[in-house]
Each structure stands twice: as structure tokens, then as C-alpha cells.
Design a protein around this nucleic acid. Sequence first.
RNA 1: GCGCCUGUAGCUCAGUUGGAUAGAGCGCCGGGCUUCGAACCCGUAGGCCGCAGGUUCGAGUCCUGCCAGGCGCGCCA
Length: 527
Amino acid sequence: MEIPNNPEHGHYATNLPMALASSQKKNPREIASIIVGQLNDDEGLIEKVEVAGPGFINFTIASTKWQDFLSSLLKANDTFGRSDTGKGEKVLLEFVSANPTGPLHLGHGRGAALGDTLARVLRHCGYGVATEFYINDAGQQVRLLGESIYSRWMQMKDPHYPFPENGYRGEYVLELAKDISREHDLRTMSKEEAVELCSSLGRQKMLEEIRQNLSRFRVEFDVWYSEKELVSSGKLQKTLDVLRSEGHIYEHEGALWIKTTAFGDDKDRVIRKQDGSYTYFATDIAYHLDKWDRGFTKAINIWGADHHGYIPRMKAALEAHGIHRDWLSVLLIQLVKLYQGGKEVKMSKRAGRYVTLKELVEEVGVDAVRFVFLTKNHDSPLDVDIDLVKAQDSNNPVYYVQYAHARACSILRKASEEGITIPMEPGNSVRLLNLKEEIDLIRTMAEFPWLLEDICRTFEPHRLTYYLGELAATFHRYFNLGTKNPEHRVVQEDVELSRARLLLTTGVKQVLYLGLRLLGVEAPQQM
RNA sequence: GCGCCUGUAGCUCAGUUGGAUAGAGCGCCGGGCUUCGAACCCGUAGGCCGCAGGUUCGAGUCCUGCCAGGCGCGCCA
């Protein structure tokens, strides 16, 4: 069943007869006629049904059914679109997971917007969802952060003090050095002690900064999962023991390897290096097996596209432990490029020169940033024109939707000022909604539950921004009918008709509000 | 060299399990406010859906090959 793009093809259409043609060895149109002849419609749902084209069946739904749908939508209120598709599902959604060694950049922001919105939609559809931020705080990078901070501190007195070769060069490192040296007397410590302290405090401060930035971006995590604790709690060792007992691990040239090639990987992978330290992959395996042990029915990871080569080995490791590869879904975020004045704003992480999420949000606002991050499929690269996102006008798609919501609120205010009340029970009032544009609005709203289920299935929340744009457009179009013909206005002389249309307006407002809330975008009463 | 992603209007991109005449925003051009918000609406122009084969009643969508761009192929994280 699909919604045809040509209005002449009715409200719904199916290609079932054509799909059945070969197996039934009959002409599709003939099959279509048989199906139509067998249709049972005791409830009077269908106003018109016809066989069309090469073998489509087109259905037109009775206006009264659309009107009834509006009534049920109004009654459902915030629960509109809720379904039981996620019943019994327990999803672990891991995203951002930025190293606590520097500020969040735009790619993290894109992942945050995607993950958070996906979580909201899944929850709305009845899934149990836990969102999680994995903190890479066990490896060399945090140590390097400490060394970088220490070096910046030393350079305050001796500008020639060497800086670590691959150290973090961003300005924030100097800020950290100042903060830490203010709070602690580094001079009384050995270098080793000082670096240690800089690492641990640097990690802590960066993490707090990251948490705050995300919170301001309206993203909150249920769990902050520390890699360090994974190691210190013994979970890493336990995992390796299990994999060893299952026969997936072997030693070679002084290193410990896992046989991922047995499960489709290109080559086996080292999990413990010759020097005795563990690879990132080792803790990541332990981390994912721990996700499994915690009883999740599904794991979703959002990674930067530069990690895509990592997927086969991760899935191989899971399979080695008997976990089906589809249990884990990895969504890849392609690059975010920033443009200003028609030119690309070049970014270089190594040199510490890049636009942070915080800066972009401060400049253009949370609503606009979240919205534009979800206007594209996560799998395609995203160009963000900062001038366009910053524009407080119609060039900015987020305002188009927010404006529709504000406009609906404004109409309701107007009605209230004129003393027109909205019926508590829609009852027969909705029967007065018979304009094509009114039915169109209800039809568009009726797509919403389907849309949410689609998003749960495909993990593509960007469809929501498109949908809201469509709903807003349908509403704006409807509103503008009234600028030509007073009898098409919502608030007008015929009070009964006004009431009916106020119900419709309330419905539109509800769905816009709900959709924007799922996007983490505000729905203003006025702008 | 191998692998993954992308290629659709001037630009940025949608396009559902393969369906009827491929869409939106921006930009261009032209219209619409004496009463519900013009941050809006209506209309015009603009397309070998990267190229070439194949499967199918039917392909932007599936398969194969090629071209172009991005990313990845470490006992780095």
C-alpha cells in the first residue's frame, strides 16, 4: 500500500495485482478486478475504489473517516503516533563518544543530533532505549593530553620547553594548564606526578565541558561508560579469558591475536601488543560484549565515517562469541563541511584550528543547528552554509516549520479573543471539514505514525524534518486560502464552521509540536 | 591495488518493499497583504537521475563493468 503522488490516483494505492501476476499467471487487471469484487467494507471506509493503469487498485477514503481520524488524533494528543512496534525491544544507542582530549567539533554535533533524535523517536514508538557515551580514557591519548598540558605550563616560564610531537595544540590546552596550575602547585611535584595529575584533571575538565556542551545542545546521556573502568574492573581480562576458552585467541610473535578472519574480516587483529599493552580494539570488544551481557536486544553505534573499516572486525568479534552480526548496527556519519561567504572554512584538528559545536551553537542557536544536521541522510556529506543557518528569515528551513506552529497558535489566540470556544468533544463538529485542503491536512497528519515506524526501522530521522516541512507547507497553503476568500478562514462568521476548523488547527499544532519535540527543536507560540 | 560511502535541476539535497507524469529549498523571472501573522502563498523556466550493459510488464531504486569525488586499509587512538 502506498500513497500515490498523483491526486487523481486516490488516497491510497496498491500494486498487489502486478506483484501477483506472475505467480497467478493472470493478467494484473483481471486480478485487480477479482480483488475489488471480493472487498469487504462493512464500515464504509472506502468511498471509491477503481482499477487503474497497468493493474493498480486506487482507493479513496470516505471524508467521514478522515474526520473521525482527526477526532482520534486530538484525543491521542501527545501519544499520537505511539505504537507497540518497539514492544519488548531494549536498545543500546551509543553515540558521540568523543575522546575527552578536546572540544566537540561539528561531526560530533551531527552525531549527537542524529542519536538523540533517534532515541526520542524510538522511545515514542515503545522501544526501551538507553543512550550511552563511551569515554576513551584508558589509552595513550589521555596521557598525551596530560603531557600537552604539562608542556604548556612549562612554556609559561620557558618558551623553549619542548611540546610533544603529536600533542594537542588547541588553545584550550593552555587554558587547562592555567586552570590546573592555579588549583595545584605543580612545582612541588616530579614531572611524572605532574603529568599524571594533568592527565587526570584534564580528562575530568574536558569531560565536564563536553557534558555541558551536549546538555546545552539538549542532549543528555543515560550512561557515561568509562573505558578505564572497563579495564580496572577486570571486565577486559574476563572477556579475553572467555574468548581464549572459546578458541578465538592465539599468540604470535609476542603479541596476542584474535581470529577475526574466521568471521569475514580481512586479517586477524592484534589485541595485546608486544609491549604488553592492549589495543583499542581489545577494550572495544570487551565493551560490546558487555553491552550484550547487559541484556540489550539491539545495539546501535553512531561512528564517524572514517571508522567504517572498523565494522567488519567488530562484527567478527561479536560473531566469535556467538552474537549475530545484525545485533549491532553501525550508522556512519559523513563529514560536515562548513561554508561562509561561499567559501569553505578549512579545519585542521592537528593544528587545533577548527570550529567547535559550541561556537556554532552560540552563533546560530540550538534549533537551527539541530534541524540542519537532520536535513540530510547521515550517509551523505553535509555542507553547512553558516550564513544560511544564521539567517533569521525564510532561507532557514527551521523557521518555516516553527512559523507554521506559531501561526496555528496565533489563530487559536485570535479565536479565544473573539470568544469562540473549541468543543471539548469533537463529536459532529468535524463533519463540517470537507474542503479538499482540509482533508489534505488530515491525510498528511495521518502519515505521521507511519513515518515514525519507518524511522525506527531505517534509523533515518532526517525524514522527520522533511515531513514537518511538508505538513507546514500544507498548513500555510490552507491558511492562505483565507486571504482571498473570507469564507475559507478558520475564524469567521459561521461560528460552527470556525469551531470545526479550530479543531483542525489544534490538530496541526499538536503534530507540529510533537514532531519538533522529537527533533529536540522548540515550538514557539509566537515569533 | 583492495574495501566502504557518494554522484538526481545553476547550488544544497529528498525520493518508502522496484510502480503511474522524478520532487523540495535556495537562486532566476512574474504575481498576491483594507480583517485569522507576507518568517507566508501562487505561477514560469530549469533534468541523457555520472556513463554503458543486464534483470523486469515496469529501474533514480536491483545486478555487472567503467568514470569521478570522499574516506579507510597500523602491534595509532
